[in-house]
Design a protein around this nucleic acid. Structure first.
Lengths: 206, 206, 206, 206
DNA sequence: ATCTAATCGAGACGGTACGTCGAGTCTTCCC
DNA sequence: GGGAAGACTCGACGTACCGTCTCGATTAGAT
């Protein structure tokens, strides 16, 4: 399946390198500055491109940054499957924390901040990050329903309970996570969602 | 105790009414627009004041909004004390949800968004909202430690587990909370923090 | 009669000095460059002002130059009255040639050139320069009608015959005028307009 | 005689049709707009050509217009020879006025306007229009020197006296010429240049 | 009852970034 | 190799806010 319909019309083809450099420049700047502090000139200069090259492909400065964000977070973060639900959850949290404490953390905060006032950013965030992540986690949990996971588990609620604390700390706290944070959070939440009967019958503790 | 050292020199005294109108105007605008979209002119016009009146008393436009936010959220949100920890938690969540779904919700999101790029806003948010709220909740929980609350409960973690989901939904979700949201969240978290022994000895279920 | 209605409203008064400096800067630049080559930045920089100061008072760059032109040519160039019509004409041509060969010559050419495409410039040129000059000359000629000037003289035509060659040379020729140019032109035109009878009766040659 | 040295190398030959269409387009636009208002895109579009076709053969947009002007005014405007100098002059003025009031008038004004700031345009105007026209008129006048024309006639001056009023009116006036304009102008100028003695001896009045 | 000093509204000032437009160059495909 | 298409860099345009400033008018306490 072809990635995109490439009519390959006449004329000089779009300089794909420049597009990439512009997005990269936007991303780099997002690691240092907020949406509003980033100027079109700064993006152009860092990309070694011209301001008009930006406005040819993006309707305004902000959409460049939105697309940069989109590309940046497009990486997968698959829900693990060790057979042990508790461990799966802990690992998933661990991996996500790794993301949120890395170089790209500022990008997340910029993204969420921008989403508060720009519906397009909000929509993009939903579509390319939140929903895929939640869908994967939901599917992973669903596999265990009636077994390690309670029969009547409210998945939406569980997702909030797992992801919420991480975002909360990132956005309103000191942005630091102690070593045992994933384990500690798992400990609290898992009891509330685990199927006590199943563990009892299978002679396993949690 | 004197509120502030008022030397009360000569000259026309500050028009306290104008100060209040400016802050109110800022607050109103925050319910509609983001930090960056609000202009000094807009605040002045809505307040029926002049731009100079703003810059005379605040160093720049953003500090007006920060102060407006500060006054707006200065209201107390005390942790309840019914004797029943689970109920206290549920009520606290309920009350907070009420706040987050009211007219003032947008102010919270604006505040958090601005905090991502403006350290002063971040510091203010910490000092006047986050820390007081967390301190109250911590004290409320501490009263129950060793009794309804597990002996080894990690309060910081519990706070994250309770507040996190709410902020998460407000900032990255659809901003809506179902009727039973507080109850559902309580159900999940409470099992992980409750002192099972105490409830066993006291013949109470949770 | 007051020169201008000065309501002296509130607010900081317009910096008249800056206005003058901007117009002067425009004028200076007009001596070196064409309308199109002059940028708003160049005007602002030379005037020691900001671009916004320009756009606050003039709707666009060109209107600054138009006003500069207006002020520049506002000087009087009265028609002489020596009693001798031929000498009056020669002197008037001499004086105008002096203007057209001076530092300000380029301003005239710029003005006329701009008038070809900008109706506002054209209208301004008519109103503040062409018509006043022609009116003065007309009045001067009319005084002699029936005496030194033929009874049936067509003033509009005479004006064209006198001024036309000068503009023609300035705009399409080498812009240089020989020493005897005024005299030579007078010699040609005067015979065609002089009242031969009057000179005959008064025993004067021309 | 070969029109131009055409080495006729390999490859596709220049599309002469496109060249003509581009020049025509330029000319058409000059009838509506000024030099500065005409864009390369507009020329290309109206010519049904591409911008590259323009820049392949002309160094820049303005040279296209200059060449268009050159071709447009290349038409002859020969000085008549009826044997009667006064009538020759009147006819020449009449013909020129016809040109200046026709569809192509705007081209003249555009040309002269552009010449004020672009030396290349000025030089072209001199070479292909002004000098040839003046040379023809000079030759026509010279034929009569010592006869109908005064012996000491200053031809340069006479040329200015005849053409000047027309350009003056076209460039700075209302661009309209009354029906008897040529006659009226001739009347004024002719007396100043006619050889009174010759007419006296030949028993002719003027 | 003045005088004095700080406030208030109004609005001009120098800056900085925006997004648009046109110029002239360059790079591809198609003939 | 010419021609159309169209992306590229560059630079000026006119707009919108920013935060600063300078006015006249106002308003109290101090004299």
């Amino acid at each position: 399946m072809p990635e995109e319909e490439v009519p390959r019309g006449r004329g000089r083809p779009r300089c794909e390198d420049s597009r990439a450099r512009i997005l990269d420049a936007g991303l780099e700047l997002l690691e240092e500055l907020s949406f509003a502090e980033i100027t079109a000139d700064a993006i152009a200069e860092r990309a070694g491109a011209s301001r008009s090259a930006i406005y040819r492909w993006w309707s305004n400065k902000d959409t460049v940054l939105v697309e940069a964000l989109r590309e940046a977070v497009a990486q997968e973060l698959p829900f693990p499957d060790t057979g042990n639900l508790r461990e799966d959850i802990r690992l998933q949290l661990e991996n996500f924390i790794k993301l949120l404490t890395g170089r790209r953390a500022r990008i997340f905060t910029a993204f969420v901040a921008a989403a508060q006032s720009d519906p397009e950013v909000a929509e993009t965030f939903q579509r390319i990050w939140r929903e895929p992540r939640r869908a994967a986690l939901k599917a992973g949990l669903e596999r265990h329903r009636g077994k390690q996971l309670r029969d009547d588990a409210d998945l939406e609620m569980i997702l909030d309970a797992l992801y919420g604390p991480l975002y909360y700390r990132l956005l309103t706290g000191n942005k630091r996570f102690s070593d045992g944070y994933a384990e500690a959070l798992t400990r609290i939440v898992f009891e509330g969602i685990a199927n006590r009967d199943w563990f009892h019958h299978n002679g396993r503790s949690f």
